[in-house]
């Protein structure tokens, strides 16, 4: 039936247009928030080195994950890309957003614990919609590392902790 066909076509076109505008708006807003928080958390470096700097530290495992999906329009574009080959930019931005968001959340957790450095940062990516054919379009990224927290208390011989001055942390004494 021609009427029914055109109705279905219109439905798809409207969906594509709507998801294009809403999806683009959401992505821009997300990038803005990522940039703002990255600037704020610049003072807390996250590195992939394994050797801690000299000094008194307590360490704690910090991790954060995020699951992000892309919009319908971009998935449509990606399907076209898959046909013609080449760079699939819609997925590149998806993964970029997910990784940066996961790192930021990890940094926020480390900041909450008053850490000054995050060592041995690793990423773990997984596509949770694997095996679902059509609906692939979301990834989960986990970022984890070891946060170094400058220790305020130093254990003494009788087992009691006494307050160490902040200077001793900065001088980097090794016992």
């Amino acid at each position: 039936m021609p009427f029914q066909f055109s109705f279905q076509l219109w439905y798809v076109v409207i969906l594509l247009v709507a998801t294009y505008f809403i999806g683009t708006f959401l992505e821009k807003r997300h990038y803005k928030s990522i940039l703002r928080r990255e600037k704020r958390l610049n003072s807390l470096p996250a590195v992939s080195l394994k050797t801690p700097p000299p000094g008194h530290y307590e360490s704690a495992l910090v991790r954060a994950n995020v699951t992000i999906s892309i919009d319908y329009f971009k998935r449509f574009l990606a399907a076209l890309h898959a046909f013609f080959g080449g760079r699939v930019t819609s997925y590149e931005t998806l993964l970029d957003r997910a990784r940066r968001e996961a790192l930021l959340r990890m940094k926020q957790e480390a900041e909450y614990q008053k850490a000054m450095l995050i060592l041995n940062v690793r990423y773990e990516t997984c596509s949770i919609y694997k095996g679902r054919g059509n609906s692939i379009g979301s990834v989960e990224v986990l970022a984890y590392g070891t946060a170094l927290i400058p220790s305020r208390t130093r254990p003494t011989l009788n087992g009691q902790a006494k307050k160490a001055s902040a200077a001793s942390v900065n001088h980097g004494q090794i016992h």
Binding site: L26, T67, I68, S69, I70, Y72, G137, S138
Partner: peptide
């Protein structure tokens, strides 16, 4: 949520 993209909390 998959339609518009974004975080799947």
């Amino acid at each position: 949520k998959n339609f518009f993209g974004g975080e799947l909390k």
